[in-house]
Amino acid sequence: MLDWKAERGAGEPYPGYDVLAKWRSPSWNDKTREVVAARLKAADEPRFFTREEFETLIAVADRILPQPAPRPPIPVAALLDQKLQDGVMDGYRAASLPRDGEAWRRGLRALDAEARARHDHGFAKIVESDRDDLLRCCEAGELKSPAWDGMPSQTFFKHRLLRDLVLAYYCHPISWSEIGWGGPASPRGYVRLDFNDRDPWEAAEAKPGHEADALRVNRNVR
């Protein structure tokens, strides 16, 4: 079931480390287990977005946060869909942006329209380098299709698109393991706080020439 973990290692800073191995440890309280369990069950089918918008979103997320094989991908688009469906918002917004959900719908439709105008295909159907070019134009505020309906593409990119996708990716335990973060920590916190100090329930970093040591230690992190 977890074969990909055995393969992971080469080039990764925390080979074999899995924050979920601490699920039943004193580092995870009941409330944390409850909210992370709900997150791990994120539905594949969109509830907030239409199927078409959702496909565009997947294609965007894939370029903002490219995911390495062989590990299972973090369902970034599904996590964002769930958040918007649940009405979880930042609340504040630039005067030029509509509320979070409407900004997303309009932004995805506009990116799709821009792709069709340039490449005769929707955003999800164009090649990766063309997607990156379009996203860079979006970031620079150079996209002006009427589909934006007055919303500046630059503001949408920085304050909605980039922010929301990054938060979705780094709310998932797979990303926590990837960066070697300790993860949830309550009621058990930490004892060793100094430079190069790690508690036995923290990830061990692979040092050059000693990757196997880190792998062995990380398999026993609980």
Partner: peptide, 23 residues
């Protein structure tokens, strides 16, 4: 003790996120 998760996303429930405009 019972309501707080060790989780950044969940704990945004502590913030004031009602509609506001900034300029």
């Amino acid at each position: 003790l019972e309501d707080f998760a060790s989780d950044e996303s969940e704990q945004t429930k502590l913030y004031w996120t009602d509609d506001r405009i900034v300029d």
